[in-house]
Design a protein around this nucleic acid. Structure first.
Lengths: 208, 208
DNA sequence: GTGGAACCGGAGGTCATCTTCCGGTTACCT
DNA sequence: AGGTAACCGGAAGATGACCTCCGGTTCCAC
């Protein structure tokens, strides 16, 4: 996993500081995978084998640490999207991307919540711009390609696509079979067939 | 909305106490609709025009109050399912139910989280049995009927159905168009068509 | 009308979590 | 090796929620 290292703004960190910083990020990442946004600073310190003060030396606030973790996931998602579009034809890139994400979200709460936070511009993290333009463009291209190839319905905005990805994550956390959930989502995103029942099936008007 | 009144275990409440209890539930319901589980007891009291102590007289704990609100929603969902199955033919009952729920979830965070809590047996509320047998049976019947009518794929367990409902709620909160989201879900739940691309579309084996 | 039980109110206790502070320690430069 | 700036640790402070407590008030039975 690509952990973004901070650009050398001032001087390079002292050896012990760099070691500790890495230990902190690694520990936090492990916890983020399980607990998501509700990871605790004390636990991070303990798991890294350090004091809390040291954690706060490197990340002045819990939010700063969370940003690091979210961005790490955003970056790896960008990489995955890139790779998928390179390896797959336009029609099936979306399919593969979604299936991959479904499986990963099943194993990584933090990844799921990273997606949420991008879309929601959440209360906790609204200070920063999480909606990385990169990922946005990447997804937009992928969806557009698929729509032009005629395998994704045209009335699906990127906004809806994102929302559906969040929803998929939630469905998986709620105990659904990831593969099946992804499949339902994919089938649903294709251009619709004729309605299942075209008579007046409901007592009230179903097509309002 | 049906607010379940407690059975007269001892004597009926004094007039002022009954009035206050109703004010509390009404205030809490309003907040639950917006804030979900993260509603705050102080705010409930304030909105009801009462002191915090009074709230705690009627509901000894925040969880107790939450239970009331969740159960209220479970009951109204049962009513909705009942009504839907009475008014619609088996093939379209699921459709109507899901569309209705999608719209409602868009307006009521508490409803969405009530669904979650039933499925997840959440950490916060694991003391009680939220998964009302009634609603469970109702949904089971509805899904089974739809499967027998051939409009819902047979490999969809009730567990997956619940998970998808949760996911739908999340997708709507994340900003998706409720009607569109519901439609995607419904199309996805139908028996699948042939795959969109049956050649070797991806570099790696897509059917593992 | 009156006694008394039930009820109300909101200041303050408790607890969990984030964050700060500063004496002691460590690594880098000459 | 020695000086010093950077760094570490963890106890203590700050914050924000839930919840309790008890003096004052209100309603019901007689």
């Amino acid at each position: 996993m690509v952990l973004s290292q901070k650009p050398p703004t001032s001087r390079p960190l002292r050896a012990d500081a760099r070691r500790n910083r890495e230990a902190i990020v690694a520990a936090a990442d492990d916890l983020f995978r399980v607990d998501g946004m509700s990871l605790q600073m004390d636990e991070v310190a303990q798991r890294a084998g350090l004091g809390v003060g040291t954690v706060y030396r490197h990340f002045p606030t819990k939010e700063a640490l969370t940003v690091e973790l979210v961005q790490c996931r955003v970056e790896s998602t960008i990489g995955r999207a890139e790779e998928t579009m390179r390896d797959c034809d336009p029609a099936s890139a979306v399919r593969r991307f979604i299936i991959d994400m479904a499986v990963l979200m099943g194993e990584d709460v933090g990844l799921r919540e990273s997606f949420e936070v991008q879309v929601l511009a959440d209360n906790q993290l609204d200070e920063c711009v999480y909606y990385r333009q990169d990922l946005h463009q990447r997804k937009l291209a992928m969806v557009k390609q698929a729509q032009e190839a005629g395998v994704v319905r045209g009335d699906l905005a990127l906004e809806d696509f994102d929302a559906l990805m969040c929803g998929m994550g939630q469905a998986i956390v709620a105990g659904g079979n990831p593969k099946l959930i992804a499949d339902v989502l994919l089938e649903g995103m294709r251009v619709p067939r004729e309605p299942v029942a075209d008579g007046a099936a409901c007592a009230d008007g179903s097509g309002e």
